[in-house]
Amino acid sequence: MKLYGVTGWKNAGKTGLMERLVAEFAGRGLTVSTLKHAHHTFDVDHPGKDSHRHRVAGAQQVLLSSRNRWALMSELRGAPEPSLADLLARLDPVDLVLVEGWKRDTHPKVEAFRAETGNPLIARNDPTVRAVAADCPLDLDRPVFDLDDTAAIADFIAAELGL
């Protein structure tokens, strides 16, 4: 599986870029999966539902299935957070995995950047950021794309990965 990341600070446009890239690559006939890192507690389950009740009761894993989808939830219960490599190993094979977050890992990334956030560019000090998708002109030693030019960003990623 080929792996490429989308990184950036909060409100930089990462999720929108991820969404557009998934649609772009899927539209090109590639199979795509995503991994999203969260820095906060989150829950994909709802109190009162059977699966939530199983988890709260102490189940290590809960697999929920229907004719349309299935989901596996694993509780860490104090165990260390799995590494990106550990999580990738759990995915079914696809042509491309797009990763949102994990900015300190060594996989290649494109940085989403919005000037209005006032945050510094990650790319200036991180060689794993291979390009920047920005809402303003930037003077960098690597490609800079318009944040909304999804096709050009996808072309760059595809070329980098040989897709």
Results as ranks from 00 to 15, higher is better:
P127Y: 09
V44Q: 10
R28E: 07
P93V: 03
E19K: 12
G118R: 07
E100N: 07
I157Y: 04
D139I: 09
Y4H: 12
R104N: 12
D146K: 09
L147Y: 01
F156N: 04
K109Y: 10
K49V: 10
L21S: 04
L63H: 10
G78I: 11
A38G: 07
R77L: 13
V97C: 12
M18V: 15
P120N: 02
L91S: 02
S83N: 05
G27N: 10
D139E: 15
R67Y: 09
R130S: 06
A79P: 01
R20G: 06
K109E: 06
G162E: 09
R124C: 03
N68Y: 11
K49G: 03
D105P: 00
R114V: 04
T7Y: 01
S74I: 13
V97I: 14
L21G: 02
A79Y: 04
H40C: 12
D105A: 14
A79V: 06
K109C: 05
I153N: 01
L87R: 14
T34M: 02
P82K: 10
G29Q: 07
A71V: 15
G5V: 10
K49S: 13
I153E: 00
E19F: 08
D149L: 02
R124A: 14
R142E: 06
G13N: 02
N11H: 13
A85M: 09
P108M: 12
D139C: 06
G5I: 04
E111I: 07
K10F: 13
D126K: 03
A134M: 02
D45T: 14
P47Y: 09
D141G: 13
I122G: 00
L161W: 08
L30D: 00
V132N: 00
G101T: 11
H107M: 15
A123L: 02
L30H: 12
I157Q: 06
A89Q: 12
L35G: 00
D43W: 06
N11W: 03
L17H: 03
L35Y: 07
P82F: 12
E116Q: 12
A79C: 07
E19P: 00
K10E: 14
L3Y: 09
F156D: 04
G78W: 07
